[in-house]
Amino acid sequence: MFGYLIPYKNELKVRELNDWQAAYCGVCHAIARNNGQMPRFALQNDMAGLALMLIDLSGDTFISRKRACPTHLINRKQSLETNTALTYCGDVTTLLAHHKLNDMWQDEKKLYAPIGNLLILRGYRKAKKRNPLLSKKLKDILDELYIIEQDKEVSFDIPAALSGDLLWEIAQSSKDINEKDKLALSDMMKNLGIWIYLADAMEDMESDIKKGCFNPLVQNGTPSEKRISQAQEVMTFALSRAQLAYNLLKLEKSAPIMDNIIRYSLPSKQNLIHEKTREIHKIT
């Protein structure tokens, strides 16, 4: 999920930071246990937030213990015990890694992409077996996104909404959560998906122009002021919608961390991204 859904650590209590870290390590260990060692390299920080929310909403317990791992052989870190939510997050990481590597081969012909896919193949097949519907939906959405992004004149709304649909499906396929919470979670994730897509588009504008890659905010090889202004409005709207959906979730243990992300970290990041974009592209 591109590394945006992470808390502003300076505003977290030490206990909350440890919980975040334990969730991240928990997902990593779950991947190792259920999908093999290689997909661990694809794990991003965002997945810790999803894991914490899913455990909270499913009413599962937060049990952690110190465990060693390849990067922490001596100073072992607290890690949540593998449970349904962590297994699911591990599967989502593996499925997304597989599709990301496919994209990299299709778009940029990076040689390491098919090699990477071969290394995670076994883990991918296990994740696909446990989540057949999700795997198909992710593939369909990413295939559609690939086709949409061939049209450089397409309105930025459409690929952004597909990115939202991707996270919607991930939330919808989560297990052991009641329907009302799942609806609110899915709507929140959908709006965060739209936000993340546009944030990424704004941050990557310069490099995409240089490489000639698709960017929904670029028109005829130059940043479009009109599209950028509209995209900034849409980002604010999507984030406000995500907050409204978040308000309807009944979180307890993960509430301080998720509050930090939704109410502080993301709005701050948005302000920084918008200011930087206005500065670089001289937009008023």
């Binding site: 309105s155 709304d157 909404a161 649909d165 959908k190 995209a231 409005e233 999507a238």
Partner: peptide, 12 residues
């Protein structure tokens, strides 16, 4: 309809 699909700019 577009609002429901997440096409916020076009919906507006």
């Amino acid at each position: 309809c577009m609002m429901g699909k997440g096409w916020y700019a076009q919906a507006q």
